[in-house]
Amino acid sequence: MKFVVPYLRVVAGMFAAITLWLAIVEIVNGNFADAILFVAFAAGLGYLAIGKPLRDHRRRIKAEQDAIAARAEVGHRAFLAGDVRAAMAPPPEPPKPPRIRRGVVIAAAVAGLIVLMGIIGDISDGLDSPTKDDASTTPRAAAPTTTTPYTTSAATTARTVAPETTPATRISTTQVAAVASTAVMPNVVCMDLQAAQDTIQAAGVFYSTSVDATGQGRAQVWDRNWVVVDQTPSVGASIGEGDPVLSVLKEDEFSGC
Rank of each mutant, 00 (worst) to 15 (best):
V110S: 02
A213H: 07
A108R: 00
T148C: 00
L54W: 07
A89R: 11
D223E: 15
A196G: 15
V39E: 01
F254D: 15
A16S: 15
Q197Y: 08
R99V: 14
P186S: 04
A40K: 06
A49W: 03
V245E: 01
S172W: 03
K132C: 07
V235A: 03
A162M: 11
F254R: 02
D122Y: 13
S153V: 05
T156A: 03
P163G: 02
A203N: 14
V211N: 09
G217C: 07
Y150L: 06
I171D: 11
T214R: 12
A108G: 08
V228H: 03
G82R: 01
D122E: 10
I123R: 09
V4Q: 02
F32Y: 13
P144H: 00
S172I: 06
R71C: 06
I119N: 03
A49D: 10
T145E: 14
A168Y: 07
A158T: 15
S238L: 08
T156E: 13
D192H: 03
T152R: 06
P90E: 04
M191E: 11
Y150W: 07
P167L: 03
V229F: 06
R58C: 05
R59K: 14
I27L: 12
C257G: 05
I18A: 04
P92D: 12
M185P: 08
A177F: 00
P91N: 07
A109E: 10
G121P: 01
P92T: 01
A17M: 12
D252W: 12
A177Q: 14
M117P: 05
V110H: 01
F79S: 06
P167A: 08
A162N: 10
P91F: 09
T169F: 01
R85V: 13
A12R: 01
P233R: 01
G215F: 12
Q220I: 09
Q220H: 10
G121Q: 06
Y7Q: 02
D134C: 00
I171R: 00
P233F: 06
A143C: 00
E251M: 00
A142G: 15
L249Q: 13
H57M: 04
P92Y: 07
P97S: 00
R159I: 15
F79M: 09
D125Q: 10
K62W: 05
S129Y: 04
D223M: 09
A89N: 03
T209F: 02
F15K: 01
A180F: 12
V221C: 00
L127T: 09
A107V: 12
P130S: 11
Y207H: 15
V188E: 11
P144S: 04
T166N: 13
Y150N: 08
R60G: 08
G13Y: 02
A17F: 04
P97G: 08
P90Y: 03
P139N: 09
F206N: 08
D223Q: 08
T209S: 14
A12V: 08
L246W: 04
G242L: 10
S124C: 02
A178Y: 05
P139R: 01
V11Q: 05
A86G: 14
V104Y: 00
D83Y: 10
D83Q: 02
M191W: 00
A107I: 10
A213R: 01
A42T: 15
